[in-house]
Simulated scan of single mutants.
Amino acid sequence: MTQASAVLITGASSGIGATYAERFAQRGHDLVLVARDQARLETLAARLRADFKVAVDVLPADLTNPTDVATVEARLRDDARIGILINNAGAAQSGGILQQTPDSIERLIALNTTSLTRLAAAVAPRFAEAGTGAIVNIGSAVGFAPEFGMSIYGATKAYVLFLSQGLGVELSAKGIYVQAVLPAGTRTEIWERAGIDSSTMTDLMDVGELVDAALVGFDRREAVTIPPLHVAERWDALDGARQGLLSDLRQAHAAERYHGAK
């Protein structure tokens, strides 16, 4: 029997990341767990080793710190056992643009986009050489919704979707599967960390239900998985409209409506 590939999961100490860790351990995958909180990682790792008899390595890292990002990049480049990357680490945004500081903006972008991109770029060449591998990027339905007033957070998640789709175009011929997972509100600690009282929020999805749905999409090799979207045709229509828009672009000249007097 072929041994299941190891899975590296960022943001693995709680919430979506910890649930992914449990689900892949149930499937018999060894794990590399990445997060800032080493104590929580060690506790989770001990439980998964005991319950599922898999090997679990703990790799403490703050993915807003370039040195720590480089450490995780090296692990992805050098550890041939790792065949799946779950890019889950991320932070939410409390308040609109007027409430942000330069530091809060920099940390949010560093965590939600820069580290995710660097880790995907670190592992992609090895996956391409092997002709197999999977990259899962956790985005958000907020990336469709500037009306929600979380402009920076939403922009980072729109980036995650675009990057995932672009990587799918670039890498699928190399045998690499890329999935974007777009949750809506999910019951995790991300809200409290952003200073948001989640008890005032209704209709949050349970994290186990979210990850289980994402894994159905993973097994089906969906490019984009949106667990809270109940009418799948809405996504098909949106993507079809996007492609129709591209077909109407004529870059040599401005459209007629932009010619002439105001």
Score class of each variant (00 low, 15 high):
residue 113 T to N: 12
residue 187 R to V: 00
residue 164 S to W: 02
residue 123 V to N: 07
residue 126 R to H: 03
residue 156 T to S: 13
residue 146 P to C: 07
residue 156 T to R: 05
residue 187 R to C: 00
residue 184 A to F: 10
residue 119 L to A: 08
residue 138 I to Q: 02
residue 167 L to G: 03
residue 139 G to Y: 02
residue 132 T to D: 11
residue 202 T to Q: 15
residue 141 A to D: 01
residue 166 G to D: 11
residue 171 L to I: 02
residue 134 A to W: 03
residue 105 I to Q: 12
residue 159 Y to K: 08
residue 101 T to G: 12
residue 129 E to G: 02
residue 117 T to R: 13
residue 189 E to V: 07
residue 103 D to W: 02
residue 117 T to Q: 14
residue 197 D to L: 08
residue 202 T to M: 08
residue 160 V to T: 13
residue 146 P to N: 06
residue 109 I to C: 06
residue 160 V to H: 01
residue 164 S to H: 03
residue 197 D to T: 07
residue 142 V to H: 07
residue 185 G to D: 00
residue 161 L to S: 11
residue 134 A to G: 01
residue 129 E to L: 08
residue 143 G to K: 09
residue 203 D to F: 00
residue 167 L to W: 15
residue 182 L to N: 03
residue 114 T to W: 03
residue 118 R to K: 14
residue 118 R to H: 10
residue 174 K to T: 03
residue 195 G to Y: 08
residue 128 A to K: 14
residue 121 A to T: 09
residue 124 A to E: 12
residue 197 D to H: 09
residue 163 L to P: 05
residue 195 G to N: 07
residue 181 V to D: 01
residue 163 L to M: 15
residue 141 A to F: 02
residue 112 N to Y: 13
residue 101 T to M: 11
residue 183 P to V: 02
residue 179 Q to C: 06
residue 162 F to M: 10
residue 189 E to P: 01
residue 143 G to F: 11
residue 147 E to I: 12
residue 123 V to E: 08
residue 166 G to L: 10
residue 113 T to S: 14
residue 195 G to D: 04
residue 153 Y to L: 10
residue 186 T to V: 15
residue 180 A to T: 02
residue 183 P to Q: 01
residue 113 T to I: 13
residue 148 F to M: 14
residue 145 A to D: 12
residue 198 S to R: 15
residue 125 P to S: 10
residue 116 L to T: 13
residue 194 A to G: 10
residue 202 T to K: 14
residue 174 K to D: 10
residue 132 T to F: 11
residue 178 V to N: 03
residue 198 S to L: 06
residue 165 Q to R: 15
residue 119 L to R: 12
residue 143 G to N: 11
residue 170 E to L: 10
residue 147 E to N: 10
residue 147 E to R: 11
residue 184 A to R: 09
residue 137 N to W: 02
residue 201 M to N: 01
residue 144 F to I: 00
residue 203 D to I: 00
residue 197 D to Q: 10
residue 126 R to M: 04
residue 136 V to K: 02
residue 174 K to C: 03
residue 191 W to L: 10
residue 102 P to G: 09
residue 158 A to P: 04
residue 178 V to S: 04
residue 174 K to Y: 02
residue 172 S to Y: 07
residue 120 A to C: 14
residue 203 D to P: 00
residue 126 R to F: 04
residue 108 L to Y: 06
residue 136 V to Q: 08
